[in-house]
Design a protein around this nucleic acid. Structure first.
Lengths: 139, 139
DNA sequence: AATTAAAAATGTAAACATTATAAATTTAAT
DNA sequence: ATTAAATTTATAATGTTTACATTTTTAATT
């Protein structure tokens, strides 16, 4: 059942302990960009010995090994995404929900890099309001 | 001397008090993406009555009125940029420095928006290592 | 110039997510 | 069975940002 999570971890060189598997499986089946707190609260009922520090440790490990992507938009919470394909995100300024967005027809982009920076990854995000929240916001 | 800062504030509907002018002027002449703490420490020697809460209050006001842009990349610090023209950012994973990056030849991009989200703004950032830091990092 | 109301700035304490640390537990190899 | 390494845990600490209540300043009116 957690075969997919297991092979995903092995593929990225992460030893699949029970807690790591549980968190990986949770992330793979809940692509809702959860926070560490959200993950902890969702798994705790099933793994009563789970510690929040462990959740943070494992998420950091996953991110370093690039098994998952860390999403930082509002600076309040880091969110995590098991979908590591290139895509953009949207966050509602009111309710904080994060959605996926996929850009089409992106042309090859060139960029001056006068400081010779080594670029690892690229993140694109939009902010605004979801249809539910825009009604209740005066702008 | 702070004529530019003053007209900038007035243009965005912000009343130019002395502290607001000082912070605006600092941001306009120091495009280094400073943090609130950095701004406070830089101005405090010249404005000994300045409070850190005031710095946060004013930065939040500026952001709401869109006088400046808030940059969130690593979730540790919010950084602030008086350059509100569309451009991307880079942050070094080691030293945390933030650089500007300008993309060329971006083609018109289309995007499916099935959830009818209202998009306000778009942020693009890259992470990696600056030339100084890449030497000292084992990857 | 004095009075008053509104706006701006201040200091302190609190909230909150995340990390550091050290101890305990589990795993895996000998 | 023994031992070392890896993993997990609990607690405390860190550090940024916000909440709150007070004080000060500004600007308008008398």
């Amino acid at each position: 059942m957690n075969t997919e999570a297991k092979s995903r971890l092995l593929k990225f060189g992460v030893k699949p302990s029970l807690h790591r598997l549980a968190i990986m499986e949770y992330l793979m089946s809940n692509l809702i960009h959860p926070t560490a707190d959200h993950i902890y609260n969702s798994l705790f009922p099933f793994i009563p010995t789970l510690s929040k520090t462990t959740v943070y440790n494992i998420l950091k490990l996953f991110e370093e090994k690039k098994v998952i992507a860390a999403i930082v938009i509002d600076g309040k919470n880091t969110r995590y995404d098991a979908d590591i394909s290139q895509h953009a995100h949207f966050q509602c300024r009111k309710c904080g929900v994060v959605h996926d967005l996929r850009l089409n027809d992106m042309a090859p982009v060139t960029m001056d890099n006068p400081d010779n920076l080594i670029l690892d990854d690229c993140h694109i995000y939009f902010r605004g309001y979801c249809p539910d929240c825009v009604k209740s916001v005066s702008r």
